[in-house]
């Protein structure tokens, strides 16, 4: 019983962990695009694509990463694993993937 309860608790906290991370990312993004005159079809969320939907450029990705580092006071998150693949920048970054990527790094 104890094990089941712990597992349930862990799963619940994990979910709320993801929700908390998502809220932080959405807040950072809202702040960044506040004066970009964006006309978004849908509110920012896990499905938001930084490049296609928000028109992100490299400098915005740098700004986004720096804001995450600043928020969590953590400069050792290996963001290259998120934005690079086989020595090249990936074509797109989806908010939901950022949440999944961040979760284990923020658990420590």
């Amino acid at each position: 019983m104890t094990n089941v309860t712990e597992t349930t608790r862990a799963a619940a906290s994990g979910k709320s962990g993801e929700q908390a991370i998502l809220s932080v990312l959405v807040e950072i993004l809202e702040d960044m695009i506040a004066d970009w005159d964006m006309d978004l079809d849908e509110p920012l969320g896990t499905g938001t694509r930084l490049i296609i939907d928000l028109g992100f450029e490299s400098i915005d990705v740098v700004q986004f990463i720096a804001a995450i580092e600043e928020h969590y006071r953590n400069r050792s998150i290996p963001f290259e694993e998120l934005v690079m693949k086989d020595g090249r920048y990936v074509d797109e970054i989806v908010v939901g993937n950022v949440v999944t990527f961040l979760k284990p790094h923020l658990a420590h």
Binding site: I51, G55, F56, E57, S58, I59, D60, V61, Y89
Partner: peptide, 11 residues
């Protein structure tokens, strides 16, 4: 290029 990411339009 103006940016390796995106089209670099704003830059």
């Amino acid at each position: 290029p103006f940016a390796p990411f995106g089209g670099g339009t704003r830059s």
